[in-house]
Amino acid sequence: MLLHLRRSFVMAIICMVLFGFVYAFAGTGVAQLFFKEQANGSIGRNGSALVGQNWSSPKWFHGRPDDSGPYAANPAKGIAGGDNPLVANGVSGQSGATNLGPRSLTLLADTKQLVRYWHELGVNPTPDLVTTSGSGYDPDISPEDALVQVSMVSRATGIAPIRLRDLIARETRGPQFGFLGSSYINVLQLNEALARLR
């Protein structure tokens, strides 16, 4: 038993050094050397393409309503939040979903509120636009989610709908290799392209 204990302590230390620190440090080294931009969070001029933001003005394409009900209510009331990784799921600093079940009264009420919110903006929402994501900061929307917002953005910016549809088509990324995952648009990149159009 004593021999087991001694070996266990030695092995635990070897593992900590080798599979904890050497592995993670070597990995970080390779990552920082060859994939610096990705490894540091894909951060551009206006934020990271990895985390969604709360786009409240009708001049911009909106992302998914992470933070659900409050997302709809907050912009009007001037409360910051929504799509911010530091308040995702309503917990400061933590990513995560709402975790509301499929027969949840709260989910039903939240969804109704979101539908009203979109109708006030003159948008007929798609399912993505009234449901929250798994991460609490999904940075992407589907092409359909962008297309239903065209009239809203067009009214607010004066850009012709046809040009916005072109923009959406250009910014759409298909499933990887044609079949892995779904078609999506990064909302930040779409809005950056929209800013250049003005």
């Binding site: 969804t111 539908v115 399912p127 589907s142």
Partner: peptide, 24 residues
């Protein structure tokens, strides 16, 4: 999703609540 459907939004892309767009 039953709750989303009850709120009047019918989906052809499945239950989107709690899912990420890029995966489907």
């Amino acid at each position: 999703n039953p709750a989303v459907a009850a709120a009047g939004i019918h989906s052809t892309v499945g239950n989107t609540e709690g899912k990420e767009v890029r995966f489907g």
